[in-house]
């Protein structure tokens, strides 16, 4: 089978993948790198479970052709905690504020929130809701997810 070689930065490491050109970034992450944090909830860009951050932007990796990631920097939920295992404030806040139930949407939620906070460290509730609008959740009604993001904002502010 024909394959292409793609080099990019994945959770801080320089990596190279050799995969069929038809693969999405999501498939590459899950199958080639065995990073199963990003989930496939629909495969067609409608649910956000596969969200990763590419060069600072939240992206649905299921519809992102793998070739396009060449030279870019990708962050998945696996790269969110510190190398020493310290949880990111968003992760802590989701646990503390019940932003997680079944957890299937969670990695996508976290990555959308991460992209938002990197760009806008003190978002309003509306801004949070807008940036999470592409991430569907069936369990939480979003309320405690939004609160979790707000809590993370507070934690990060207190720390700095």
């Amino acid at each position: 089978m024909e394959k292409i070689t793609v080099s990019f930065i994945l959770n801080g490491d320089e990596v190279t993948a050799e995969v069929p050109p038809s693969w999405s970034l999501l498939k590459t992450l899950r199958e080639y790198f065995e990073l199963t944090g990003p989930k496939e909830g629909c495969g067609v860009g409608e649910c956000g479970a596969c969200t990763v951050v590419i060069d600072g932007k939240a992206v649905n990796s299921c519809i992102y052709p793998v070739a396009e990631v060449e030279g870019k920097s990708v962050l998945t939920v696996e790269g969110l905690a510190g190398t020493d295992g310290t949880l990111h404030p968003l992760q802590r806040a989701f646990i503390e504020n019940n932003g997680v139930q079944c957890g299937f949407c969670t990695s996508g939620m976290l990555m959308s929130a991460k992209a938002l906070l990197d760009e806008n460290p003190e978002p309003t509730e509306d801004e949070i809701r807008t940036s999470l609008a592409g991430n569907l959740c069936r369990c939480t009604g979003y309320v405690q997810i939004v609160e979790s993001v707000q809590k993370a904002v507070k934690m990060m502010k207190e720390k700095s």
């Binding site: 944090g37 989930k39 939920v77 949880l87 019940n98 997680v100 957890g103 976290l110």
Partner: peptide, 20 residues
């Protein structure tokens, strides 16, 4: 009490049928 037991769900380590 927070759901600390489920920390795998915020780190991408929880294994669903999709991942198994």
């Amino acid at each position: 009490i927070p759901r600390t037991a489920e920390v795998d769900k915020v780190t991408g380590r929880a294994i669903y049928i999709n991942d198994l």
